[in-house]
Design a protein around this nucleic acid. Structure first.
Lengths: 191, 191
DNA sequence: ATGTTTTTTTGATATATGTCAAAAGGAAAT
DNA sequence: ATTTCCTTTTGACATATATCAAAAAAACAT
């Protein structure tokens, strides 16, 4: 989904407005496994994923990677807290495939917020949408068995679930990769 | 914290703006254990908690109450999805103490969003703040032991943790109340 | 104060899932 | 094609936490 259509699907901008807004973004092509943000750095950009996919993750005490979120096509990807508060990021941000992104800096997005009230609305809608998704995951994680959590994953990220290493999904779902492997064995896989 | 100070702490409104905004809210005093929203109903209001506290919860398959969130003084309380999408609420909303609330209807808040771009900003900021909190909880729930989750609770809801039934906290933290009881036994309680 | 209900604690036991280690399978590189 | 590296699977065993049941404590009502 291209970025214009995506923006317009949330708020209807005039042609001029849309063009002005798009001019605050920069298009960027990045290769598989490229790291956009390091843990501890400030995340300077909000990225729109036009093609490809990414994830955020952190290293736990044992130094193991824990996937925190997946970002598919047509989504905003960022280390939200870091980006909005200009605080050190708790997460790494990386792309998992060759991807096409549109990025916008904090100062540019703030300019847009000032200039266009509709942008505030867009920000509000995008935040609430993300909030809903996180709440969904929370409910899955908190009260469901490993098997049920995997079902949640299939529903929430159908496009992603068969394209990334099993270990990434396991850590995202809060289970060991051995457990996920055993679950998959019993899952009647439709292909 | 009274509602005016709260609003002004997020966005600075003029005196007239603030008064107009406040006129869209209704003050309401409710007694302990009163249920504001039933599961399946539409949540028609967003509540600001000036005094007291509340929680959202749902009934799981076994009919047991699962606390989903606590809302303390100075917070907005609502069944977010239901309120914003006018969809049936997945949760009950109840107050856990005699409380003083300010409520605003969906149509009124939409009027304010239309009238004041600053309100969009307020909505965006409040959503992002909530998002951050939910992400925090998610991280606590997903990768921490029962003991560590209780520590998270102490940090996130210091004012609430000793004032509500242990069972509510246990279900909020995704553990049995027996487990929480055993954890508390070993927690050096400062009083 | 006394009885009744609700909440919390304690003990015994069960189980889902984690951890560790090694084998198998696939992908990438020479 | 072979080698090397990375990912996934399998097996054996350990353990945190759930569940069930009952006692103790606290809160509430008459």
């Amino acid at each position: 989904m291209n970025i214009s259509d995506f923006l317009m699907s949330l708020v209807s901008f005039s042609k001029d407005e849309l063009n002005d807004i798009l001019n605050h973004f920069e298009k960027e092509s990045v290769l598989k496994n490229e790291v956009l943000v390091q843990q501890g750095d400030i995340c300077n950009y909000l990225y729109y994923v036009e093609q490809g996919m990414g994830r955020s993750y952190y290293l736990n005490e044992s130094g193991r990677e824990i996937t925190q979120w997946f970002f598919g096509v047509g989504k905003f990807m960022t280390s939200a807290d870091s980006f909005f508060q200009k605080s050190p990021s708790l997460y790494y941000l990386e792309v998992l495939e060759d991807s096409v992104l549109y990025r916008i800096s904090k100062s540019n997005i703030d300019k847009l917020f000032e200039k266009y009230p509709k942008m505030e609305k867009l920000g509000r809608l995008a935040s609430i949408e993300m909030l809903t998704r996180v709440v969904n995951k929370l409910n899955a994680i908190q009260f469901q068995t490993a098997k049920e959590r995997y079902d949640y994953m299939l529903a929430e990220f159908p496009d992603i679930v068969y394209q990334v290493p099993l270990g990434h999904i396991a850590s995202y779902l809060g289970m060991s990769q051995e457990t996920l492997s055993r679950i998959r064995k019993n899952e009647p896989k439709i292909m």
